[in-house]
Amino acid sequence: QVASGNGDRDPLPPGWEIKIDPQTGWPFFVDHNSRTTTWNDPRVPSEGP
Score class of each variant (00 low, 15 high):
Gln1Ala: 14
Gln1Gly: 15
Gln1Thr: 13
Val2His: 05
Val2Ile: 14
Ala3His: 10
Ala3Val: 13
Ala3Lys: 13
Ser4Asp: 12
Ser4Cys: 04
Ser4Val: 09
Gly5Lys: 15
Gly5Thr: 15
Gly5Cys: 15
Gly5Asn: 15
Asn6Trp: 11
Gly7Glu: 15
Asp8Ile: 09
Asp8Glu: 10
Asp8Leu: 08
Arg9Glu: 13
Arg9Lys: 12
Asp10Arg: 08
Asp10Cys: 09
Pro11Ser: 14
Pro11His: 10
Pro11Val: 14
Pro13Lys: 03
Pro14Val: 01
Gly15Ala: 02
Trp16Glu: 00
Glu17Asp: 05
Glu17Arg: 01
Ile18Glu: 13
Ile18Gly: 10
Lys19Tyr: 00
Lys19Glu: 01
Lys19Leu: 07
Lys19Met: 08
Ile20Gly: 06
Ile20Leu: 13
Ile20Lys: 10
Asp21Arg: 05
Asp21Tyr: 00
Asp21Pro: 00
Pro22His: 08
Gln23Lys: 11
Thr24Lys: 13
Gly25Met: 09
Gly25Phe: 04
Gly25Leu: 09
Trp26Ala: 15
Pro27Gly: 11
Pro27Met: 14
Pro27His: 14
Phe28His: 11
Phe28Lys: 08
Phe29His: 03
Phe29Thr: 04
Val30Glu: 03
Asp31Asn: 02
His32Asn: 01
His32Ile: 03
His32Leu: 03
His32Trp: 00
Asn33His: 06
Asn33Phe: 01
Ser34Arg: 07
Ser34Lys: 02
Ser34Met: 07
Thr36Phe: 05
Thr36Tyr: 07
Thr36Cys: 08
Thr37Gly: 01
Thr37Ile: 05
Thr37Ser: 11
Thr37Leu: 03
Thr37Val: 08
Thr38Ile: 07
Trp39Tyr: 09
Trp39Asn: 09
Asn40Val: 11
Asn40Tyr: 13
Asn40Thr: 06
Asp41Trp: 00
Asp41Ile: 08
Pro42Ser: 08
Pro42Met: 00
Arg43Tyr: 01
Val44Tyr: 07
Val44Asn: 03
Val44Lys: 11
Pro45Cys: 12
Ser46Cys: 10
Glu47Thr: 10
Glu47Cys: 04
Gly48Val: 10
Gly48Leu: 09
Pro49Ser: 10
